[in-house]
């Protein structure tokens, strides 16, 4: 009996901790991306932390974004580095057809974008659950 209680305490503490640190699909459904990715309201570190949590899930689900040569992961690591260096701007380098190119953004904007990309990627997985069949001929798609 004692062991049982102990295990269940350990279990629930463990679960509690993991729900703090790891984003889930269910969490994603209920959050307002504009709010959680607002740099003024949450601080740049807070926004980047949210970005990292959701992007880890996005990667696990195989839905990470890549916009104009730059993945969400790169947005996160390069923006984190800029924050550490107290830089006002982030330069994101990427290669296209063997040539190195770059985008430069305000650090706050890059953080917002990293967070937005990470959360939206996961939210889209939820949204697709109810929409994908609507596009299948003979199923939800009538013609």
């Amino acid at each position: 009996m004692k062991t049982y209680t102990l295990t269940s305490i350990i279990l629930s503490v463990g679960l509690g901790l993991s729900s703090l640190s790891a984003a889930t699909l269910a969490d994603a459904a209920n959050i307002d991306v504009a709010k959680v990715c607002d740099v003024k309201a949450n601080g740049i570190e807070g926004v980047l932390k949210t970005a990292a949590e959701y992007n880890a899930l996005a990667k696990k689900l195989g839905v990470e974004f890549k916009r104009k040569g730059v993945t969400t992961s790169q947005y996160i690591t390069d923006t984190e580095a800029a924050v550490k260096a107290k830089a006002k701007e982030v330069t994101l380098k990427y290669t296209k057809k063997g040539k190195v190119k770059k985008h430069t953004f305000a650090t706050t904007y890059a953080a917002w974008r990293a967070c937005h990309f990470a959360v939206r990627a996961v939210q889209q997985v939820n949204e697709a659950e109810t929409t994908w069949r609507l596009a299948v001929p003979g199923d939800g798609f009538k013609f």
């Binding site: 839905v63 974004f65 890549k66 990309f117 889209q124 949204e127 697709a128 994908w132 596009a135 001929p137």
Partner: peptide, 22 residues
Amino acid sequence: GKKAYYSQRGYLKLSCATCHVQ
């Protein structure tokens, strides 16, 4: 595979079907 094909994905929220079916 079918679900992946018809699910909207990416920054542009497009599915394969958006372009290759509809």
